[in-house]
Design a protein around this nucleic acid. Structure first.
Lengths: 401, 401
DNA sequence: CCATTTATTCCCCAATGCGGATTAATTCAG
DNA sequence: CTGAATTAATCCGCATTGGGGAATAAATGG
């Protein structure tokens, strides 16, 4: 149980001020005071401390009030991009994407390695990631010493708190302590997170959910993932587990349970097409869905039917999630969206059919074909979030928790 | 955005101390200090204030440390049962149950009205509830003036924050502002909550989840409900909606979506049996499930099959919920449990089949055939929780929020 | 009756947020 | 160009909080 002392009080207000500055670009102290409902005195004190710690910068231009700007001009404050650098990575079965960002989450360099890593031994995957991180850092004209934190986004079930990967389609082993593995290799604090959570934060900071503190994101990639944002924070189940949508059960067949992943995973959609020569090559290169889109455009009936079936299943799952969480918006992302309108419309239709009438107006569905880079950026944001929350005043680099 | 000032700080610590006293029976200041990690000084100050407000009592007996009790004996503190009285109610289609409790949540009187109210006009239902509340209060040798708060637990989708009932099987109308309705009738602050949330808190305070701050409860009554306890608090979707399990989609039939309620609601289980004369009478009296149990004992094949099918569907739904929330325990309650082992074992079997192996050890299933009184008590606990959180120092009886 | 032990309270300090007064930095009127 | 007006930011003093250490209270044991 956290004891509420003045220190915590300050930490909370400090975080709110910092977060307000992050969200609302260059912003004056007065406006921070209005938004946070803290007194100008307190804002002044906190911003002084933030300036002192080099987390924010002043800027004397850009006071864009009504032209009749009487009085002393406001001094605008903004995040100091140099305050920290982090690396975010998205690891998928057939590619790894890295991004180095500054304290604002702006990408300084990024790197895509189209390597198929699934089912390789942990050590091999870790080697490749280590290499990618190092290269991406160099690309940004930095050294690893300049990096404050790293976050690896993986598909599957990830226990953020402990850094264990319970199960992932790209690992043969289960329950891997991957955070420790990478931390010891790179000698930089490294955290592990579900890729869906990463893209969720990316959309909260920069994408389709900038305006919302509550929302749900569904990611449709090789793996089907879920991210829930609640009161501006990632909602991680009781034990800090990430959610794995693909494991959701949609019914029972003759002798087996039918999981969403069996109906709507990449494999399920491509089906026997994946066997075809040219297609198989495309899939291997991670262009499976784009290729499928061209086949659909050419009216490949089997594929159209598969896409439609998958969309239906996903629509049902989304309806269930809305039933449970009641978010004002559901952002749907992932490579499967490049299947095109057949797929997307199927999701929408099925959702509208399945959503209970009593809450049919609660949620709005938004589709977004996020770029790979955005996923890696999201992972970087996860890392930044941890930095934000940590007790900045204390210089300690190791946030022992 | 809540600004963190000394007042909030005190409110937090005060709540923690009060909650610790509630949970751990008569407890000394020293032990409170240990559990909350607040200094003894602070605990002393806060308890002095709580004593001053009459929320807790001292008791000089009962220091049960090791017999070698040297030194000044500890003064035990406990909740003052007289500090508040609340009424909780559980409204079901065929009965209404009321309970008056003291500040500790102990039942002072309770009352069951076996009245079928579903689909009556709001005014009629409100009349009946008003009457029940008044009678139950009188039974406890109290007057309505003595009551600090009332909570009505209803099946369906309830928006706790606004007091609106979005949809409920017992209301013909949708989106009813039932909290206002009852508040104006009784002239006592009345809140509305999902019945599932009520029984969830009941189990957290007194039942099968006393030891846990994170858990999920599934209620199987006429309506299928869900309660999620997260970090010791009810998790109410983004908008304060309650969850409605029955609306979960389990698949798509020829021309309609198959919802859990269609497979596992009371009606679905009893099926055509409900038409039978004696049986219909039992159902009308709210003894449908018990009666069904005797039929099952007599090896009524159709009913056994129905119970088994329903159990399967629920097992799947529970597996999905565990996939999403990852709670350490799932408490399953409700009248349907009186169907007996066929039903319960079917749930367990189906759950074990459906739960993804990677998280098969996360959650433990617990069945509990909670008495009606417990549900009403749970509603009372919901009311008490609101009182707990409110700014006690200020005397205002109307917690305007 | 007094030493010992343990629980609780008292006294004082550091930190926090806030309100009001003060200072700073600009525009506008003449 | 100068001074009044206006708005932003800071400074000062206060009330409140939690914490540490000393002091006090209330029992036991000899």
């Amino acid at each position: 149980m956290k004891t509420a002392d003045p220190e915590l009080m300050r930490a909370i207000n400090r975080f709110n001020v910092l977060d307000t500055i992050r969200r609302h670009g260059p912003i004056s102290r007065v406006e921070i005071s209005e938004r946070t409902e803290l007194s100008t005195t307190t804002v002044s004190a906190i911003t002084a401390s933030l300036l002192d710690d080099g987390l924010i910068l002043t800027r004397h231009e850009g006071d864009i009030r009504n032209a009749a700007a009487r009085g002393r001009p406001r001094v605008m404050l903004e995040l100091n991009p140099e305050a920290a650098r982090v690396v975010g990575a998205k690891i998928a079965a057939n590619r790894m994407v890295f991004a180095v960002t500054n304290f604002r989450g702006e990408v300084l360099s990024n790197l895509t390695l189209p390597i198929r890593v699934d089912r390789q031994p942990i050590a091999v995957i870790a080697d490749l990631i280590e290499d990618g991180v190092r290269r991406c850092v160099v690309d940004a004209d930095l050294s690893l010493d300049d990096i404050d934190s790293i976050c690896i986004g993986l598909p599957g079930v990830v226990e953020h708190r402990t850094g264990h990967v319970r199960s992932s389609p790209i690992f043969r082993e289960t329950n891997v302590d991957f955070a420790s593995e990478m931390t010891s290799r790179l000698d930089v604090a490294t955290i592990v997170e579900s890729d869906a959570h990463a893209i969720t934060l990316a959309h909260h900071w920069f994408g389709r959910a900038r305006d919302l503190d509550d929302m749900v994101l569904v990611s449709l990639e090789q793996t089907l993932g879920l991210g829930v944002l609640h009161a501006g924070q990632l909602f991680r189940g009781a034990g800090g587990l990430s959610h794995n949508l693909g494991d959701l059960v949609l019914g029972v067949g003759r002798s087996e349970t039918i999981r969403l992943s069996m109906l709507a995973g990449e494999k399920a959609i491509l089906g026997e097409h994946a066997m075809d020569g040219r297609f198989a090559e495309a899939v291997r290169l991670g262009r499976g869905m784009t290729h499928a889109q061209t086949l659909i455009a050419a009216e490949d009936d089997a594929l159209i039917a598969a896409a439609s079936r998958a969309g239906e299943a996903i629509g049902l799952a989304v309806a269930n999630i809305v039933t449970l969480f009641g978010p004002p918006r559901v952002v749907i992302v992932g490579s499967s969206l490049s299947l095109g309108t057949v797929f997307v419309e199927s999701i929408g239709r099925s959702y509208r059919d399945a959503i209970p009438p009593s809450i049919s107006t609660v949620a709005e569905l938004v589709f977004d074909e996020s770029a790979d880079e955005t996923w890696a950026q999201g992972a970087a944001v996860v890392a930044l979030c941890e930095l934000y929350e940590s007790p900045w005043g204390t210089t300690g680099p190791a946030p022992a928790l």
